[in-house]
């Protein structure tokens, strides 16, 4: 019973990811592409729930759907050009072919590797408490934790410096 429910949910999330990702890539309107990205993000969050990592699902919604999507939306709105959408212009057949090639080659190599050398997998994911994760952040992996904080701080201050530099009427 539970297994069937998990399979159905997996198929549902797969569908959400497929529809969302293809919409994010194919849509001519960038806002529609962003909606597709949001759908794919929710699908991945559902996959995290299936993998028994509720904290990651929450963080996925909080960081990606909450912060990154809003940033991308700002980027769309702040850089909107008056002459319509650049994505709507038709492009040569070559562009589609090269894009397909760029996607197919690494994809096929990775898919071949994964199916050819499957790692034995457990049927049920291992559940890890949040307390253990916090302990890991403060004991074993404290350096990575501090470094990501520094990276975020530098990125935020760098963004502020970049965006404000030309305000005084310089070039």
């Amino acid at each position: 019973m539970m297994e069937n429910a998990a399979k159905a949910l997996f198929a549902f999330y797969c569908l959400a990811i497929a529809v969302g990702a293809i919409g994010a890539v194919r849509a001519e309107n960038l806002v529609r592409a962003l909606v597709g990205l949001i759908l794919a993000l929710f699908g991945v969050a559902g996959m995290y729930l299936l993998l028994d990592t509720p904290l990651l699902a929450l963080m996925q919604l909080l960081i990606y759907a909450g912060a990154v999507v809003v940033l991308v939306f700002f980027a769309i709105m702040l850089t909107r050009t008056s002459d319509g959408f650049d994505e709507a212009r038709p492009r040569p057949m070559r562009a589609y072919l090269f894009a397909l090639l760029a996607a197919a080659v690494p994809g096929l190599i990775l898919a071949w590797t994964v199916t050819r050398h499957p790692v034995p997998s457990e049927a049920k994911p291992a559940a890890v408490g949040v307390a253990l994760l916090g302990k890991g952040l403060l004991e074993n992996y404290v350096l990575a934790f501090e470094l990501i904080s520094v990276v975020l701080l530098v990125a935020m201050s760098g963004a502020v410096v970049l965006a404000f530099r030309h305000k005084g009427g310089g070039k």
């Binding site: 990702a21 650049d86 994964v114």
Partner: peptide, 19 residues
């Protein structure tokens, strides 16, 4: 892998930086 492939396809196909 599907997400990676779709992303790579879009990265080569898109013309705007936001895309």
């Amino acid at each position: 892998i599907f997400l990676l492939c779709v992303g790579l396809y879009g990265l080569a196909y898109r013309k705007t930086f936001v895309g």
